[in-house]
């Protein structure tokens, strides 16, 4: 009877541990989602700027805001900078996407173990009730 009791405790402890891990991953997941949203916004803003720059005639006046001053920049240079930035953001987006997929899998795995542990625990409770 005593070993039975400690076994139940063991399962409960494992469940708590799994739950903590699961919550941790959920937090990470949410963080990744908000980072991805931010990147999405930045990408679309840069796309707008690129479209706008592409529409300009060569030799048009382009300025870049650096601190409080507007600095003149050549159209070509501005286009290059925006393209490079978009490239970078796309890379970051891909990274976050992969991270999210990874976290999704982890989340599923933890959920499954949690379910198993819970079933085990319930099983034990039923057994204990029958013995008593």
């Amino acid at each position: 009877m005593k070993s039975f009791f400690t076994m139940a405790e063991e399962v409960q402890r494992k469940m708590q541990m799994e739950l903590d891990k699961y919550k941790q991953i959920q937090k990470e997941y949410q963080r990744a989602v908000s980072i991805r949203q931010q990147l999405d916004g930045q990408l679309s803003e840069n796309t707008f700027v690129k479209d706008e720059l592409d529409m300009l005639k060569p030799g048009a006046e382009v300025f870049k805001l650096i601190g409080p001053v507007l600095l003149k920049q050549s159209l070509e240079e501005a286009k290059q900078t925006v393209l490079k930035r978009m490239e970078f953001i796309k890379g970051e987006l891909k990274r976050q996407e992969d991270l999210l997929q990874d976290l999704d899998k982890k989340q599923d795995a933890h959920r499954e173990t949690l379910n198993k542990l819970q079933q085990q625990f319930q099983h034990m409770q039923v057994k204990a009730a029958m013995k008593a």
Partner: peptide, 21 residues
């Protein structure tokens, strides 16, 4: 006029171009 097109970039446009923008 000089129009803010986002991400810190400003573009000089004629009045009609700016209106269109």
């Amino acid at each position: 006029v000089i129009v803010d097109v986002g991400t810190g970039y400003f573009v000089q446009k004629d009045i009609d171009g700016a209106k269109d923008y």
